[in-house]
């Protein structure tokens, strides 16, 4: 996986034919912006704002150190997986007050990667519910935070109430290789599904 940043679009070669839009979603502070930034081969789009006291009681920062900004609109990055496939990663904000924007950003996406945190698994239900409402297939990636409890896979699956076919992976959103594996698990899941027409 090339890590250099391109300025002339060299990673998007002439043979590339398929652009796939994917969502990177998850609750507040689960690591969405970090994930998209780690994987993007171009300078990512960021819409970070300093968190205010007004949001203090709404957005729970328990267990998260060193976070002073939050995404107010979206994240975006691009990753060329191979000659045939370019992934366009759209990160949507996690907080409920952004729900309409979230749905707009989801337009045209083929699937979603749901980032989860084992310290607050129950906060992922809202997002998985929204995806099911939109009929968007997804995979779940547990973002490996320092000091977060680790559970065996069957327990995690049960706690998250996942279907047997839903991929469940562990990743570190700061690490390129493990984050790439999480995305590949999603792409393989999408490829296994019958091809669906998108209007």
């Amino acid at each position: 996986m090339a890590s250099a940043r391109s300025s002339e679009g060299i990673y998007v070669r002439a043979t590339v034919r398929t652009a796939v839009k994917l969502l990177v979603v998850g609750h507040f502070a689960v690591g969405k912006t970090t994930f998209v930034g780690t994987l993007s081969e171009i300078r990512p789009l960021r819409t970070e704002e300093t968190m205010t006291q007004a949001a203090e009681h709404v957005d729970d920062l328990a267990g998260i150190q060193g976070k002073s900004t939050t995404t107010v609109a979206m994240d975006f990055g691009r990753l060329t997986l191979n000659d045939q496939l370019v992934l366009y990663l759209f990160g949507a904000p996690g907080q409920h007050r952004f729900k309409q924007l979230w749905k707009d950003i989801a337009t045209g996406a083929l699937g979603a990667l749901v980032l989860a945190d084992t310290r607050r698994l129950e906060e992922s239900f809202d997002i998985m519910g929204l995806l099911e409402e939109l009929e968007l297939p997804y995979a779940v990636a547990v973002n490996d935070f320092d000091g977060a409890p680790r559970f065996p896979e069957p327990e995690l699956r049960e706690a998250l109430d996942l279907l047997p076919e839903t991929p469940l992976i562990t990743c570190d959103a700061r690490d390129r290789v493990s984050s790439t594996h999480a995305l590949i698990a999603l792409v393989e899941h999408l490829l296994r599904r019958p091809v669906r027409e998108y209007a």
């Binding site: 391109s6 300025s7 002339e8 679009g9 998007v12 652009a19 839009k21 171009i42 300078r43 990512p44 789009l45 819409t47 609109a73 979206m74 975006f76 691009r78 366009y88 759209f90 309409q100 924007l101 707009d104 950003i105 337009t107 045209g108 996406a109």
Partner: peptide, 30 residues
Amino acid sequence: ADGLLMAHSQTITRDDADRHAAAMSGLQAL
């Protein structure tokens, strides 16, 4: 409308155009 680039002028690189396309779709939604 879903934020993917369809065409860009020669004055801008493909990489930058991709990012701006995504931002414009978010801007329009908002």
